[in-house]
Structure formats: C-alpha cells, structure tokens
Simulated scan of single mutants.
Amino acid sequence: MDFRTIVPIKNQSPKIDYEAKISLFGSCFVENIGDKLQYYKFRVIQNPFGIIFNPLALLQLFQRIDENYEYSEKDIFQLNNQCSCFDVHSQMNHSDRSEMIYNLNNTLASTRAFLQESSHVIITLGTSWGYILNSDNRLVANCHKVAQSNFSKKIFSAEEIKESLTEISKIIWKLNPKAKVIFTVSPVRHLKDGFVENQRSKANLISGLHSYREEMKLKFDKKTTYFPSYEIVMDELRDYRFYGKDMIHLSEIAIDYVWDKFKEAWIDAKVYPIMKEINTIQKGLSHRPFDETSPKHREFLDKLQLKIKKLQDKNPTIKF
C-alpha cells in the first residue's frame, strides 16, 4: 500500500551541466534551489537585488535591466542611518549613499550581462500581495520598515500576474533568445497576510502563471516550463514535520527532498559523479580540526587542495 500521493516529475531539457549558467530570481524559496546549485559549484547568479516576492515588483526590476537604467540620488532615501531603495531588498542597503548608488548600478550591469549568457532562468513567485507607496502610487519591492501608514496593501489579480510574467519573459528573450525559463510557485506560506489571504494569493499566482503558460504553448512551447515545488510540498510533504520551527519555512529535509526532485528533472546525470566529488570536497573544507597546526591536518589540507586542482583541471568552470 502507498500512503501518500506522488507528484509526477517530467524529465526536462536542456539539461543543467557545468557549462550551464543559471539565473535565479524571486522569493526566498528560489534561494533554497540556488544555494544547492552554488554548493555544487554550478555557475549561478542568485537574487542579485535580494528577495523579491511579488511578480509585478520583479517586473519593475527587469524593466530597469532592459532599459539600462541608471540609479541616482532620486531613487534613494535615508531612514535610521541607512540608505534604501524601494526597488530592491534591504540586503542592498548601505550607510553611504554614493556607495549604494554605485552598488545598484554595478549589480544592474552585471545582472544584465549574466542574463545575456544564461542557459536557464528560474523564477519563483512568492505572493500576489503588494504594497503601493501612497506618495506616488507605485508598487514597492520592499517597505524597508517605513511606517505602514505610507502604503496601501493590494492583492494583484491572476490577469495582472499573467501580464507581468508575459512582460518578464519578453525582456529575458530580448536579451537572450535561447534562455529556458523555469517558473515555480513558492510553497512557503505568507501567514502575516492571514490564512485566507495567503490562499487567495497563491491561487492568483497559480492561476495567472498557468494561464500565461497556456498562451505560451501556442507561441513558444519549449521556451518555458513549470517545476511543481508548491505541489510537491502541499501533496507529498503535507505534514508539519517537514517545516522549520516557525511552521512556515521548509525544514532542511524538505528542501533536500525538493532539490532531489529538481535534480532528477533538470541536472544532467553525466555530472552526478562530479557533484559527488564536490560534495566530498565541500565537507572537507567545512571540517574543523581540534588542532589546525598539526602535521596530520596540514597533510589533510594538502590532499584536499590536490583534489580541487585535479577537479578544476578537468572542469575549468568550477571555482572554489
């Protein structure tokens, strides 16, 4: 007897190998996949502007990338000795205004360059809810702890979600016609919005995304695909033991499970032996000895560096 339902995972292409370049954007869940790809030393750019939960806020960033936008003083505000920008996550904040403007423009340029060479673009949708800045009626990517009285909360419709994904895809393919776009919906619940509100939000994301993909099938059938991370967690791992202490974010076991499904669908089996070797090296690099100065530990490090050199000689794209 089988006591659970299994979400079928289709074999996908083009496969991810060590020649691939992967761009990842969106909610915190995309970082779970991105962290695994980085751990195994694939070439990755991951949320260069920080976590962006709402697809319409993500579209605004893609529009900045597309138009070669140049950030300036007008885009920056200061609060509690920190400079911030409503386009990006607070991880981009800086105490120095000039330095922050430089970082924003440098990140914009490097993201554009990486996108132009990316074989795969992974986008995870987090929420349909967004916050509108009352002073100029625009959607912000992050409120940066500005008083909530300055914003109006809005849920975006499935149609608005669909339109934003259409525009994001157009920009990606304008920059890079060969990129494969992988969409997924984050299984992380946004319970601060409320239980019912979270369900409404996910429903709009799912409906908008699949409506978009149905249209794409008529035009670009092989250029987009959907990875069912939301369904895997909701249907296969529907138990609180697969969540962290906050009962919202996924546990390490759940992340590993979803990663294994992603690996099965997307990673070229030919590179599994390389991934296994990298895992051994990573564990060696994270090892903390009792005595760092001992001859035995120095010998261990020398052997580890030799392993790294041999691996990199065979696979020049792998960097430690």
Rank of each mutant, 00 (worst) to 15 (best):
66 D>W: 08
174 K>R: 08
11 N>I: 04
252 E>W: 00
305 Q>E: 08
130 G>I: 13
213 R>K: 15
90 S>Y: 02
101 I>H: 11
315 N>M: 14
13 S>M: 07
303 K>N: 13
308 I>C: 07
264 E>M: 06
118 S>P: 10
147 A>L: 05
250 L>M: 07
201 S>C: 08
320 F>Q: 02
52 I>V: 15
178 K>V: 03
176 N>V: 10
82 Q>S: 15
172 I>V: 12
185 V>G: 09
169 S>V: 04
49 F>E: 02
224 T>Y: 01
57 A>Y: 03
112 R>W: 07
298 R>Y: 13
282 Q>M: 07
140 V>Y: 10
149 S>C: 03
209 L>D: 05
307 K>C: 02
182 I>S: 11
244 G>H: 00
113 A>Y: 05
214 E>H: 08
305 Q>I: 06
98 S>D: 14
68 N>W: 03
11 N>Y: 04
70 E>F: 14
142 N>I: 04
294 S>R: 08
266 W>P: 01
97 R>D: 06
176 N>A: 03
270 K>H: 01
127 T>I: 14
223 K>L: 15
70 E>N: 10
21 K>T: 11
193 D>V: 04
232 I>V: 07
168 I>T: 14
185 V>K: 07
41 K>G: 02
238 R>S: 05
107 T>N: 14
149 S>L: 04
163 E>I: 09
220 F>P: 00
